[in-house]
Design a binder for these strands. Structure first.
Lengths: 153, 153
DNA sequence: TTCATTGCAAAGCCTTTGCATAAGT
DNA sequence: ACTTATGCAAAGGCTTTGCAATGAA
């Protein structure tokens, strides 16, 4: 009911805990990068996040963004996604369900998808080879409705 | 029946046609790289192929291997695979069915898989978003039977 | 003869690292 | 105080590109 106590799943708290647990230190830069990152909706590159972070903190360095992004992945707040275009992207992970990606090759539009049957069969295939599955990557590439009509404007 | 006439699907012929069609030129280097590539079973990096090619042709350059590999992909004889470890790999594509990959994170072992149900549902998911599918990438990561017992020797 | 290819080295590109300084704990 | 973090710039690692020389067609 209170407005001032931080919510259970407050990313800043989660991150602070993660930092503290490993004897690391919380800094204004890390707080700030996390804050900006949590406002992002889709999949940002380090470069893109760096640009946005810099808007409100001129002195921050690119390397700090890279380093913090790795930490965020470690803490479970972020997740790396490699769409195969040579850039690493990061998306929010906290409190979100696993999902895969459907990517339009015309306009770059990116739809998050989840198909229980696919997920289930992935487990089955792995098991049939005696593997235990830790994770997977599924990217579907195609053309969205708009780009099917008018490809690559 | 004849031994001397090249088989229908002779890679050298396919590649030569591809080269000729676009006004490019066939060279000993390209022939040689293709020949060595076709002897590879799994998924080779440009570096690995370069090393093998060099065994029998000391003067060949790394760049030529890179360039030829791109051409081979264009001709449909090769296919790029990005397992997410920072290296591009290439596998033979000609006359082979599509397949995905199941990768052991312990020993790097790589099993080719194919699940019709998964394939079918990928199409369905794309269609449900109005997308037409051109291709996809599915990588399953886990531990093979051996590495489950004795992880990372 | 003409235009693509080659091999070398240099450049690109994204990401990581080294280091002196700054700053959490 | 003791260590970690920061920002800068340099270094890495893989891939691509520029260029003069070479070689297909």
């Amino acid at each position: 009911m209170s407005q001032s106590s931080p919510p259970k799943g407050d990313p800043q708290v989660i991150f602070a805990d993660y930092i503290a647990e490993r004897g690391l230190k919380m800094t204004p830069q890390r707080r700030h990068i996390l804050e900006v990152f949590m406002r992002q909706d889709g999949h940002v590159t380090s470069e893109e996040l760096y640009a946005k972070v810099k808007d409100s903190c001129k002195t921050i360095g690119q390397a700090t963004v890279y380093r913090t992004l790795k930490l965020l992945c470690g803490s479970g707040l972020a997740k790396e996604a490699d769409f195969g275009d040579g850039l690493l992207r990061y998306e929010r992970q906290q409190g979100r369900d696993h999902h895969d990606h459907l990517i339009c090759e015309g306009c770059g539009r990116n739809v998050e998808i989840l198909d229980p049957t696919i997920e289930k069969h992935q487990e089955a295939v792995a098991r049939s080879h005696g593997f235990t599955l830790t994770h997977h990557k599924l990217y579907l590439y195609g053309l969205c409705p708009r780009c099917q009509v008018k490809p690559r404007p």
